[in-house]
Computed example of a mutant assay.
Amino acid sequence: MRKIVFTGIVALGGLLTANAQCKTVSTLVENFDTWKDINKCWTAQSGKAMLYNNEKRIVFYSMTNPGENMYLITPKIKAGTYTLSLDISDNGGETTLELFSINNTADAKSYVSIAKSSKITGDKKVFTISLKKDSNLGLKVLLNGIHQAVYVDNFSLKPKK
């Protein structure tokens, strides 16, 4: 019994330590080249579809589940005004990107849209975003067809001067 309790305490301590290492940031620059899986300080919410790292970029893939709410969520970001740029493309069809300020990644009611949904055209996207308080940034991708994919790379979030 002692071994079971001790193992549980060690496992819980490991989880708390892992989360404690994810600090609030004011700059994020990520090309996803070194990721083998979604980074522990980021969150992937894919519903019944797939969101994963492949070929040094993030892939949102609908499989046979178009219309899923799929989010890639950054680590917590300090309040302020930022310039966000990213390379985003798709494999065809109707796809869109929307940005959200997220206060609690586990509570969808805390997701607040901060940039209107825009069509993904294969071009670099640049946004000016304002966060009123420390929060996570969510990239919501909507895929409207089966076997559709959206690719995200060269993510850069820097304080606006």
Rank of each mutant, 00 (worst) to 15 (best):
K140N: 03
C41A: 06
S101D: 11
Q45V: 15
G8T: 10
M70W: 02
S85K: 08
K23W: 07
L139H: 00
V126K: 04
K48G: 11
N103Q: 12
V59R: 10
L86Q: 03
Q148E: 13
T83A: 03
S135P: 00
A149N: 06
K48M: 15
D90F: 00
G122E: 04
E30F: 00
V29C: 09
S62I: 13
S110N: 02
Y111F: 05
L139E: 00
I38H: 06
T27E: 02
I77G: 05
A79H: 02
D123H: 04
L97K: 02
L131Y: 01
N39E: 15
D134Y: 03
G80F: 08
G80D: 06
K56C: 10
K132D: 14
Y61A: 10
G14Y: 09
K78R: 09
K76M: 15
C41F: 00
E68A: 02
V29A: 13
G80Q: 07
I73P: 04
G8S: 12
G122L: 08
E68Q: 14
V29T: 14
E98H: 06
G138S: 04
L97W: 05
K125N: 01
K48V: 05
T17C: 05
S117G: 06
K36I: 15
D134H: 06
E98D: 07
T43N: 09
Y61M: 09
V25W: 14
K124A: 05
A79I: 02
S135C: 04
K3M: 02
I114K: 08
T83Q: 09
M1V: 11
S110A: 07
K40N: 12
C22G: 05
W35T: 03
K56A: 14
A79T: 07
F127M: 03
V126S: 03
